[in-house]
Design a protein around this nucleic acid. Structure first.
Lengths: 356, 356
DNA sequence: GTGAAAGCGCTAACAA
DNA sequence: TTGTTAGCGCTTTCAC
């Protein structure tokens, strides 16, 4: 068993050595010896597109199969300066938007022959150490769907590690981004609400330092203004279900005027809000209160919620993110790029004519 | 820019070479040269617990900081035969149980200085290729919360890669496992249902090849028998919300007798079931129909659902899984172990006295 | 098309 | 305590 310590060096002078010590993994030397060829021939066999004769390939592959040989990706990475590892940074928060994104991205990475090295980032300090970790592991690139400060980004930039931001970016610094711009849909929804007779809205936003939240809030405010809405109250949540419930309580308590519609920056909070309205405050949704939100995560369409929400095309965004990654890994001098996708309104059942 | 190709070999004979080519990352040689010490001294400085003098450490660290040096984990892995990478295999994108487990495990791994290499496994063929991938990346261990056949496990075993199964195991083959045994709680809940006057139950199970599902179904059946229940129908789902909805339709259609309680193998299906009952069939839950399930995922306690469910202690299980991993990475000859955690009944609001 | 040899960046035995 | 040296397993010129 504990033979991982053994020093068994297979050198070319070491011709008729014992087969393979059980438990030690076969190297290209082992395969070469068994096949009676040079080690570099073995290497070539496993590199697509190298010039090699048919019978050589056959002999090598036979030996490889026998020894269960698979090239060592770590060693390969050392020499090629390419680890094929991509750091994926997500927030582990209870916002179920992240798992959806994470799984999609991982899948796309796998298709491109890349591995996802997963990092959960909760705070800015986390991001700090995560970036160092990723750097130690020689990741070829970083996909960030979590918080990252500009200073932290600059570290990565200086180290020439391609970074793709997922749904966030720095407006005053060039960077590569996939982004969902829901402004069109926000306009559309607000207009629809106006038509339905709404006029008093409340907002549930996210943390101040979060760009997605800021942007969405800005768009909402702008459209609401445009259509002459009163914003009776604005509460800050933290993207979680729980913060949605307490936000609605807050709205009820602190605003003298009751809103007819609550606009939430993400689905999770909207669900909290909806549940609080129905189960605790006894307000019917959408009859007494309309609710609108963003993301379009899977569970937002469960029959208990059926949110009217502005969906992000997560699948296409993930695909784009990975493509941008691969392009930049191939050609590090590739210029920055921002790919913007439109949102899409999911007409759920959470809005109705304003109560009179 | 595209200077990743440059060959700039820093050898000790290469004393007064240009500073650092911009973009090339600093190696221990660079640090050694700048600090005027040997390369191995640098290496030692970054290995905790090596004997080194204070002023040496200081000098090296100063140079390291200046060059933003961080040891190359890939190169280290090559020589130490330890990548510090752990493959985490999860599946069931649509079952929100997995993200919870995944994030917890990743966090625990990070605490132990290990990195999660994420693999999503949807089918048995996936598992096949994932195992090869993981092997290529020299992962130190595997945590499997997804499907894996015994043959596949044996491959890993033969290669001496420690595997910890999360909530599944092979009964006819030794393996290391964290497991949640809810039998006690199943008994408790069924007894409670009996007390509430229930007698006709339906079961919604998972895929036949899934052990968790089989086990839970077995326990349910056993307890139901014990308390003299009639099992009026049994449907197979696939762990998703949608399959929960259609399962209930199935139950309604195919059983002549209407059950007073539906027992679901996991929360997601229970939520689908509940929504279908309420929104489509117009049955009140729990007044007309009680629902019971397993897992205790976060959203099962949202106000719209408040499932009565048997919770798994995911936090403690993840902790245990990672501990078992680290132990086995340290000492590969460590014997197999099975750590079994009790479930816990969450008394939600999805069960009530049986309708008469 | 194939083999020899150099080295990717690091750790660890061994000497000093 | 420090430096020297030999590789970890692989890719990649460079000859042949």
């Amino acid at each position: 068993m504990a033979n991982s310590q053994q020093k068994k060096k297979p050198s070319k002078s070491d011709q008729n050595v014992v087969p393979l010590i059980k438990g030690r993994r076969a190297t290209s030397y082992d395969v070469a010896r068994l096949a009676g060829v040079s080690q570099s021939a073995v290497s070539r066999c496993f590199k697509p597109g190298s010039s090699i004769s048919g019978k050589m390939r056959e002999r090598v592959m036979k030996a490889a199969k026998e020894l269960e040989y698979q090239p060592n990706a770590i060693a390969r990475g050392l020499i090629t300066q390419r680890s094929n590892l991509v750091a994926v940074l997500v927030s582990g928060r209870l916002n179920l938007y992240y798992p959806e994104v994470l799984f999609k991205i991982t899948e796309e990475l796998a298709k491109a022959g890349l591995q996802a090295l997963l990092f959960t980032v909760e705070s800015e300090e986390d991001a700090e150490s995560v970036i160092e970790q990723a750097w130690q592991y020689q990741v070829d690139a970083v996909i960030s769907a979590s918080h990252m400060s500009q200073a932290q980004y600059k570290v990565l930039e200086k180290r020439q590690i391609p970074v793709v931001f997922f749904n966030r970016y720095f407006s005053d610094h060039p960077n590569t981004v996939v982004y969902c711009d829901p402004s069109e849909q926000v306009h559309e929804v607000v207009k629809q609400l106006k038509t339905l007779g709404h006029q008093k809205a409340a907002l549930i936003t996210g943390p101040e330092d979060n760009m997605v939240s800021r942007e969405r809030a800005r768009m909402l405010t702008q459209s609401l203004d445009e259509f002459g809405f009163d914003i009776v109250h604005e509460v800050r949540g933290d993207f979680t279900y729980e913060s949605g419930t307490s936000a609605l309580q807050d709205i009820k308590q602190s605003s003298s005027v009751r809103p007819t519609v609550v606009m939430c920056i993400n689905d999770m909070m909207a669900m909290g809000c909806m549940d609080e309205a129905r189960s605790v405050l006894g307000w019917n949704v959408p009859e007494d209160l309309s609710i609108v939100s963003f993301d379009g995560i899977g569970m937002s369409q469960f029959a208990s919620y059926e949110l009217t929400t502005i969906r992000q095309p997560i699948g296409r965004m993930s695909e784009a993110a990975v493509r941008m990654i691969t392009e930049r890994v191939e050609r590090p001098d590739q210029s920055h790029e921002k790919r913007v996708f439109e949102g899409a309104v999911i007409q759920g059942g959470s809005i109705a004519r304003a109560p009179s």
